[in-house]
Amino acid sequence: MRKIKSLIAATWLAAGAMAGAQAAPIVVGQVGPMSGLDAAQGRAYAVGMQLVFDRANKAGGVNGHTFSLVRKDDGGRPEDTVSATRQMLAQDKPLVLAGYFGSRNVADLVKSGLLEKDRIALVGYRTAEIRPETPLLYSVRASLRDEINKLTEHLATIGITRLGLLYEEGPGAAALLAASDEAVRRAKATLLAKAAYPAGTANTAAAVQTFLKTPPQAILMVASGAAAAAFIEDYRASGGAAQLFAHSGADIEQMSKRLAEEQMQGVAIAQVTPSPYKISSRLAKEFSDTAAAQKLEVPVSYAMMEGFIAGKVIVEAVRRQGARPTREGVVATLDAMETYDLGGYVVGFRPGMRSGSRFVELSIISGSGKIRQ
Rank of each mutant, 00 (worst) to 15 (best):
L163C: 08
T127Y: 05
I232S: 09
D181L: 01
S139F: 08
Q243W: 02
E129I: 03
R258C: 00
V184Y: 09
P135A: 08
P215M: 02
T127A: 10
A189V: 01
Y197T: 05
Y235R: 05
L144W: 03
R162S: 11
A206G: 10
I158K: 12
E147L: 03
R126A: 13
L244D: 06
Q254W: 01
A226N: 07
R162E: 15
E261S: 13
E168M: 03
A121Q: 03
G225P: 06
L166F: 01
L176M: 09
A207F: 04
E169C: 00
T134P: 07
A179L: 12
T152Y: 02
E261I: 15
N203G: 07
L136S: 06
L166W: 00
L244F: 03
E253D: 14
A246R: 02
A195T: 10
K257C: 01
E129N: 02
E153L: 08
P135I: 02
A193G: 09
A202K: 10
A196Q: 09
I219D: 06
R258Q: 12
R185F: 02
A178R: 13
I148G: 00
A228S: 15
T152C: 07
L176Q: 08
A196R: 04
G240Y: 04
F231K: 11
T190K: 14
A183I: 00
V222T: 09
M221F: 02
E233I: 00
G200A: 05
D181N: 11
I252Q: 12
K188C: 01
S238H: 06
S180T: 15
F245A: 13
T201Q: 12
D234K: 15
A196D: 10
A187N: 10
A228M: 04
Y235Q: 05
G240M: 04
R131D: 14
R185A: 13
T157L: 09
K257R: 15
L163E: 06
D251P: 01
L191R: 10
A207T: 09
V222A: 13
T201R: 08
G249C: 02
